[in-house]
Design a protein around this nucleic acid. Structure first.
Length: 460
RNA sequence: GCCGCUAUCGUCUAGGGGACUAGGACGCCGGAUUCUCAGUCCGGAAACCGGGGUUCGAAUCCCCGUAGCGGUACCA
């Protein structure tokens, strides 16, 4: 047994819109780290910027996490809702002299810096003016070191940091202050977040030190980039969790894929169910380099998960995605399509012919309904009329003599049948498709195709 | 500008001084499965950013450069 207490982590997104894939990965890593050690996960929404925080954005985050099936033990906690505690901490710093009021504006700070030369951290002058912001005193000498779980120790010279603003003139606090106070007061032991916070960490460490709090352990995750190597944005296709859901991906596959983006095992296992992820994941093993989100691999992984799903679950997932009832017909349709789709989105085109008339696809028709198909197709129709029972194997057996009689390669007969009953040259296995459609509909559709074939001939 | 992070096939990665003729996965190319597509199976092409060091030996350690990224707000 290890001496370490179970860790307490937090996922702390700002409610500025849909949860991005990068945010989702951060959430997943926090969740995995917490579950791996039997720790706790707190969901805290960083909403101290009132203008950018809307209720709708809150819901989007919660909704995304729920879809990903990532649960939390506490929250969602509103950071803004902890304002009173922030005020108390602020008062303490003001009293001890660790922080001071300064009336300088951004312009003043700029001027100050222009005078001292680049690189010098701003140092203000205490003021009693009403509306003055509160700044933290940053030491001129020495450095602040972040002992990062992923990067190792990273040193930042104190002189390069401004006496930064921790509270606005109106008394509301700023991010770097609120985060430090909350992490400490909420008993957070491990902070796992994006790399973009690494250079902010010294500020938080300084706040923690001024307050006399112990610092949590930090792990800064490399950022995720789009296929062009740039920071992930809306331009990169499915960039949010919601878009992933709409594109027909399975939560379990997304978790597996996301886990592998920046983290790997020494044996390079790729397919890892969530339980295995929980068992093997360690933040310390996360890589340092930014990764690019590659939807191709996600598709492949998703296909693997789709095929391994028990039929009941598969039907349920497809029904939910299509907004249909998981009835017997859908169940039958899923049974013949499961091997073929990589995303839930790809299922409907394959099974559509079981619910609607054949699609009108001129390309398929032209490619397959060449001169000479009429006779064998008519023969196939006759053979199909006598099949008993109307099931895959008997159907195949009934069609074999037609193949022989016309000396056709299988595709020469099956493709026309496929186009006749589905309208498309792509479908599940032809025998399964016929059986699922049923004898009456199958024959009727082949008849219609024959009529169309004959009238086309007359037109020539 | 200043401060910081990062750098292995197209992509995700393994590898952390000799086991590297640099391994796996996705993707790609070719072949097989004599019903399409998908799947599956087999085979193939494909990488240590550049330059200096340290060392008997460097993808691995150090330095410089280059590139990418992040921070530098009374945003988060």
């Amino acid at each position: 047994m290890t001496a370490a207490r179970p860790p307490r982590l937090r996922f702390a997104p700002s409610p500025t819109g849909a949860l991005h894939i990068g945010g989702a990965r951060t959430a997943l890593y926090n969740w995995l780290a917490a579950r791996h050690d039997g720790g706790e996960l707190v969901l805290r929404i960083e909403d101290t910027d009132r203008e950018r925080s809307t209720e709708e954005n809150w819901e989007q985050i919660v909704d995304a996490l729920e879809w990903l099936e990532l649960d939390w033990d506490e929250g969602p906690v509103s950071q803004f809702g902890r304002a009173e505690r922030h005020r108390r901490a602020l008062a303490r710093l003001l009293e001890s002299g660790a922080a001071y009021r300064d009336a300088a504006t951004a312009k003043d700070v700029e001027a100050w810096k222009a005078e001292r030369g680049a690189g010098a951290g701003y140092r203000g002058t205490p003021s009693d003016e009403p509306g003055a912001a509160v700044r933290l005193r940053v030491p001129d000498a020495g450095e602040t070191v972040v002992e990062d779980l992923i990067h190792g120790p990273v040193a930042f010279p104190n002189a390069s940091y401004d006496d930064f603003v921790i509270a606005r003139g109106d008394g509301t606090v700023l991010y770097n202050f609120a985060v430090a106070v909350d992490d400490a007061e909420m008993g957070i032991t491990e902070v796992v977040r994006g790399d973009d916070h690494l250079s902010n960490t010294p500020k938080q460490l300084l706040v923690l030190a001024a307050l006399g709090h112990e610092a949590p352990r930090y792990a800064h995750l490399p950022l995720l980039h789009g296929p062009d190597g740039k920071k992930l944005s809306k331009r990169h296709g499915a960039a949010s969790v919601q878009e992933l859901r709409e594109a027909g991906y399975l939560p379990a596959a997304v978790r597996n894929y996301l886990a592998l983006l920046g983290w790997g095992t020494d044996d390079d296992t790729t397919l890892m169910p969530t339980a295995e992820l929980v068992r093997r994941f360690r933040v310390d093993d996360v890589g340092k380099a930014a990764a690019i989100f590659d939807e191709k691999k996600l598709r492949w992984l998703n296909g693997r998960y789709m095929r391994e799903l028990p039929l009941e679950d598969y039907v349920a997932a497809v029904a939910r995605h299509l907004g249909r009832e998981p009835d017997e017909r859908l169940r039958e349709a899923c049974a013949i399509a499961q091997e073929k789709a990589q995303t839930l989105d790809e299922v409907w085109p394959l099974i559509r012919f079981l619910f609607e008339p054949p699609v009108d696809d001129p390309k398929s028709w032209q490619k397959v309904m060449r001169p000479g198909v009429e006779e064998p197709l008519a023969a196939a129709r006759e053979a199909l009329g006598d099949v008993e029972p109307f099931a895959p194997e008997p159907i195949e057996a009934a069609l074999a003599p037609v193949l022989e009689r016309f000396e056709l390669k299988p595709g020469r007969l099956y493709q026309p049948i496929r186009v006749a009953i589905t309208g498309s040259s792509v479908s599940p296995g032809i025998f399964e498709s016929l059986a699922a459609l049923g004898r009456a509909d199958s024959l009727a559709r082949i008849d219609e195709a024959l009529v169309r074939l004959r009238s086309a001939k007359l037109d020539e």
